[in-house]
Design a protein around this nucleic acid. Sequence first.
RNA 1: GGUCCUGUGGAGCAGUUGGAGUGCUCGCCGCCCUGUCAAGGCGGAGGUCGCGGGUUCAAGUCCCGUCAGGACCGCCA
Length: 616
Amino acid sequence: MIRTHDAGTLRAADAGTTVTLAGWVARRRDHGGVIFVDLRDASGIVQVVFRGAEAIEDQELSREEMAGMSEAHALRNEFCVLVTGEVQRRPAGNENPELPTGEIEVNAAELTILSEAAPLPLPVDDTVEASDDIRLKYRYLDLRRSGPARALRLRSKANQIARTVLHDRDFVEIETPTLTRSTPEGARDFLVPVRLQPGTWYALPQSPQLFKQLLMVGGMERYYQIARCYRDEDFRADRQPEFTQLDIEMSFVTQEDVIALGEAIVSALWRELAGHEISTPIPRITWHEAMDRYGSDKPDLRYGLELTELTDYLRGTEFRVFASAIDAGGYVGAVVMPGGASQTRKELDGWQDWAKARGARGLAYVVLDAETGEPRGPVAKNLSAEHLAGLAAAVQAKPGDAIFFAASGERREAQELLGAARQEIARRTGLIDEGAWAFCWVVDAPMFERADDGGWTAVHHPFTSPNAEWIDRFEEAPDRALAYAYDIVCNGNEIGGGSVRIHRADVQRRVFDLLGITPEEANEKFGFLLEAFKYGPPPHAGIAFGWDRVTMLLAGADSIREVIAFPKTRGGYDPLTGAPTPITSQQRAEAGVDAKPKTAAIPGTSGEAVPVEHSR
RNA sequence: GGUCCUGUGGAGCAGUUGGAGUGCUCGCCGCCCUGUCAAGGCGGAGGUCGCGGGUUCAAGUCCCGUCAGGACCGCCA
């Protein structure tokens, strides 16, 4: 080491010690005869004092040391320097209580400029928030700031905490291939041409799903991996195509065991990194209850504002929007905005635009007069006196509130609109406690949902087990069949999810049948897994945490880019490296991008489905 | 693919109903300064107002297109 101490660790007790520090010039305050330099390294900041020539003579410094002094005048922000000097208590009255090292300073005797810094394209300053593209282009400068640096260090700690929890329970960390074949997760694959087999392509894994199941067949019993996954879909604040999962699989366990392990992991993470004790067991809500009460399969439980179903209450209404939904066997429901009656007409119209932006036709509303509680608004004119009279009680609204309605022949569609409105109401009315942590498990997810072609598609993936109630009869009512599938949700973010897997060949065949996957297709697509399952596969189950989201929440960030060392922009562009780039014709030829495959491609397993008779 | 927001010296922002010379803070360069800590003082350099087209006597400002960044929908667990 070229230094003896870390700058941020020096305290009053170190006074009298001669130290050598290495780091960057965070700030320079040049008074002519005395220069203060804030020296920053990974541990923090300490003030270094360079004194004028007279003072140096008093200290009987050598000629080389004096030469070093004159260099201090030339220091600029972000120069990389080596400083030797004595730690001294600051003169009385000059302490800085804002700094951990504020009681002392380092009286410089020697200065070496390790490297100079050009004028900065981006200030290394915690108080200035630069735009995303400039931050990413100069990410190495961005990372010198305390916030971004802290985020990456927190992520590292999260990794360590998770590993500790898992190793304490005899889990084995195993790496799986990143050049592989398509996994059944339903997103677009990233494809890699294979020079050794022109015309053939690897897929980057959307998850290690199939490999971790094979590891269970292989008797590893307890596997985990902090795994890179790739899904070629559009970006969001909490999503990019290249992301990380804490991936876990266990043999001879039930859903309860996986949930208990998941709670142990999040409890340890939030205890150590957020100072928050999660009370366990974490509450559970079924998928259907989550949709009914919150209009979301990842409900934010930091606030109430539950939805009310009004399908039965409004049955017989002459208001066409509601009547047609009810007649179609659909759903009408409402969510209340406390105090919403005081909104201007313009604000209420704004909700229509808000709903249209989400693909809805609009958002019907009734406001209750703050004084009389009398229902008013365009929709109120269309409802019968009877329906209006009982409305406030039915949705538990008070005078001065606004009631928003959604109606659709598709229950889920209307519920999701109300769920989104619920979130928006909470935001606008300040109902969200930003300091709160609200966890829940969403359990009993449906096995299947309708595909566009009228068949069925797996909600999770085709290896998810029906629960005990449905395992022998899911064909009878695929729309109602439930899976042993569970998601863990924090403040409205899905931070993890998993399932019990099918390990019985007969059940797997029946699920494939329902999904319209022929034995031939199944064999082509994941015959290797089915083959493995011939040889005594253990019952197994697992979970995967969206690690970027987990660390984002722990870091208090609002985008996963903040907890990724080198993230990309929404266009998939990396402003730092300039990736992606075109390739040369030689690279193109060698990669075999245009080579014809020897055998035809097999279509995917998602979306292709055979219609099955509906249960209702 | 769609909706919305943003784009003004190196960075962060302001710029009114379209009206003379685009302003502020920080940074940068030079000088001064011995106790500052977002140091201070004096002086200076640095701008195709993202790009292209249009309306107008006149466009940073209005309109159309386009590019880039961001939020959301679609897509994606």
